[in-house]
Amino acid sequence: MKPMDLQELEKRFQEKIDKEIKIEPNDWMPDEYRKTLIRQISQHAHSEIVGMLPEGNWITRAPNLRRKAVLLAKVQDEAGHGLYLYSSVETLGADREETIDDLHSGKAKYSSIFNYPAVTWADIGTIGWLVDGAAIMNQVALCRCSYGPYARGMVKICKEESFHQRQGFESLVTLCNGTPTQKAMAQDAMNRFWWPALMMFGPSDDESPNSAQSMKWKIKRFSNDELRQSFVDATVPQAEILGLTIPDPNLKWNEETGHYDFSPINWDEFWQVVNGNGPCNKERIEARTKAKEEGMWVREAAMAYAEKRALKKTA
């Protein structure tokens, strides 16, 4: 059998993609496809893990035991989802610990939203509603990603996450039907999280260099702007039910397009936060680095014990 040349392999690969045949770990794939996936999935995993921190800081202060249990379960899910995603990255030959080191060194990115502080209890509801809402919008699209392990991971994650957005919304309904203080707390959270939530979909299409290739490889199915628009369209009526005002004077329904128009996003802020200058970038990375460093002796101890046991068995 004569070895296929690269062009032929790439052609066959693209044919599989076009026929909606999933790519599995050991299948041949272009280096760039592999790299793109490793980057995207590990970013996604990091976002889940860093995302535990702003909400986690409210676990000890949750206002009642039911909310405490819900929040614990939700943040725990995020750890689980991070884990599923790191597992997907590992199927591509990337090492989990190495990708985590890239996060800690600042080489790898994560969703910029988690660099904003969660300062009141209303932020927890708002994160569930807006941030998880935006994430779900993205993730549902990824369930059809061409890479099998990622797509399957997303299906599992979407199933589990369906409660995340609901619990957030429910929590906000309670605040918005509560005292004026509670309502004001909810509005304040909305004011702070609306724009960062819209930024979660990433740069606009004309500024997103990798998008076209990702669409061709069916890693991505919808563009950033399409998903952002769907999110706005879905969220505005929900805000109306809550009686919250969206902090955008230009937000209005456009009969012609059948979508909501909204103001341009502050891309300076977006890039500053992505590049490390958000309100909490430093704290988030420090917290994760600390957890890893302080956990080192634990991981070593368990490994040492396992090795001793294995020796005893063979002895």
């Binding site: 379960a73 725990q76 899910d77 884990l83 597992s87 589990e160 368990a302 396992a306």
Partner: peptide, 22 residues
């Protein structure tokens, strides 16, 4: 799916905690 564990006993514990929460 998969996970990391130092040995089979903890792998089972972790699998229980990670994959059978629901």
């Amino acid at each position: 799916g998969s996970l990391r564990a130092p040995d089979a006993t903890l792998a089972l514990d972790n699998a229980r905690d990670v994959y059978t929460r629901r």
